[in-house]
Design a protein around this nucleic acid. Sequence first.
DNA 1: CTGAAAGCGCTAACAG
DNA 2: CTGTTAGCGCTTTCAG
Lengths: 335, 335
Amino acid sequence: MAPLPTAYDVATRAGVSQSAVSRAFTPGASIAPATRQRIEKAAAELGYRPNNIARSLITRQSRIIGVVAGYLENQFYPQLVQALSHAFQMEGYRLLLFTNPPGGGDPVVEDMLNYRVDAVILASVMLSSHFAEECRAAGIPVLLLNRKTDSPTVSSVTGDNDGGARAIANYLLAMGHRRFGYVAGLESSSTSRDREAAYRAVLEPQGMEVVRAVGHYDFAGAKMATRALLASGQAPDAIFYANDHMAMAGLEVARFEFGLAPGRDLSIVGFDNVAAAAWSSFDLTTYSQPIDRMVPVVVRATLEQMASPQAEPVRAVVEGGLIVRSSSRGPSLRG
Amino acid sequence: MAPLPTAYDVATRAGVSQSAVSRAFTPGASIAPATRQRIEKAAAELGYRPNNIARSLITRQSRIIGVVAGYLENQFYPQLVQALSHAFQMEGYRLLLFTNPPGGGDPVVEDMLNYRVDAVILASVMLSSHFAEECRAAGIPVLLLNRKTDSPTVSSVTGDNDGGARAIANYLLAMGHRRFGYVAGLESSSTSRDREAAYRAVLEPQGMEVVRAVGHYDFAGAKMATRALLASGQAPDAIFYANDHMAMAGLEVARFEFGLAPGRDLSIVGFDNVAAAAWSSFDLTTYSQPIDRMVPVVVRATLEQMASPQAEPVRAVVEGGLIVRSSSRGPSLRG
DNA sequence: CTGAAAGCGCTAACAG
DNA sequence: CTGTTAGCGCTTTCAG
């Protein structure tokens, strides 16, 4: 295996110094057009490409962002990762992807600190306080996506859990529902807790009770939760799920196992507005988390934190909107 | 910002040489247990972590694998990426993720060569021959997932497109169908072409005609393709889609726009067996591409190619199986 | 088993 | 604008 050509090889061939080669490949550097041409020619002939590893070692910037994502079977996250990937590529950053290991440990996640990633983005995964501390010590900004934390050094970008859940509750009330259900994601999830709290904050003062079950952010789990809710003596006729992924599972259980017609016999509402929510099979009422609006916020916050690590952490909430579809009782069916 | 501690700092504090520190963090290295302990203690106190960038520079191994994936809205790919991520993490590799840019250019993809990735995995994206050549020159193994190529230096792992499409064709024939449709992914996709060819290879010798349309591997595109097929004078009563993602779109069009009952009025068949294919709303007949069996093959092939770059490229075909569900006419409904 | 020395390929002052 | 000079933080001979 012939070793890859280095800047030194290019320099020799072009009859310039090695630093000239470096300059030729550095966007802002001052170099004569003629010199650059000679270098580019030599580089092309040799098949030279700058070694980003060596560059990172000295600039102390990897231009790599570590992303940890879980729940990739929930369409929301792949969409998010894809959008992040594009957006960061535009800014000259690449993503080092870690998926939430089934074992759940973060030893493997810590590994990304060894790569000196410039920032860490955690998409809906637990942040161990230990890991947060390590990142702070290493001066690496941490950004939580779709989850919050108590840690004061960590930024977060979330959808409007509070406003969204309230909008849903008010809408369901207005449609005449009186028996409400909630299917939580995980008890440990701030997102699920926030949505439930806001939902209850609207309903309970009106004297409404909310029955609940836990779906573990999982399709099968949400089906079981739905069965538990619908089989009970006082089954709810309006169920709000902590996300669309679970709501689709619930809709299937209601329709195919209980023979109920969503939108007539009961209302089913999700959260996220994933692509599949708009498919005819579901036509799911939901509150959107607009990825195209969230991603620029994430990118800006990340760049900002990288530029000045001691800046105040960002706590952004991106508003969505209630999207009424036929899985819920519509105005025309009121009463 | 205090700079991160280096191996040298740890050495000073532990009263050893810097190389001793290196050895303490190198699995196989020969070092006295007592020395290692002292070093580990000093490292912990300082919050030291080895710099993988510096290590990579000298070992000439990044232990990073570049992955390019597209079509993340098709559930198959996130599932695949997730499985790859886990499997490679077990082997001590991380994934640098590139998503297929909307613009489609590979300049950004070439960027990953600058990171000296140890291998490149292309999941259902076009391989430009230029890029393949660059990788070969750089000695970086390239592995195509779910796509083939003519390039003799490139390995590939695919599902059993030929066997699967034949199984589907034979099954549909046996169920008494006589008017067949095919919805292609992209004309340029080897996978779509292979599936179509095998499907026709079974049907045409039996005197069957196959009408076709192109769905561009896209949900909306597949809906349009389906409309075109079903609205034509001699509409097919059995349609095979190049993948499940498009088949689900087709099923929705048939059911909600044409009022047809899949499994009775027509048969709809996909390919992949994604999780959603098993959902009650679709209950889609399909031929599986078993991710849990494909991934180990991919990992093994990648490790092999990295170990000996001049080894023969791997061309693996992973068998799946026909999964009959209610979206197609079953034996009991024959005739 | 341990330390000294020599770089990996590149960027970043600093002169010229 | 260009070349020279130092390293970035680590692994790896090579002696001892």
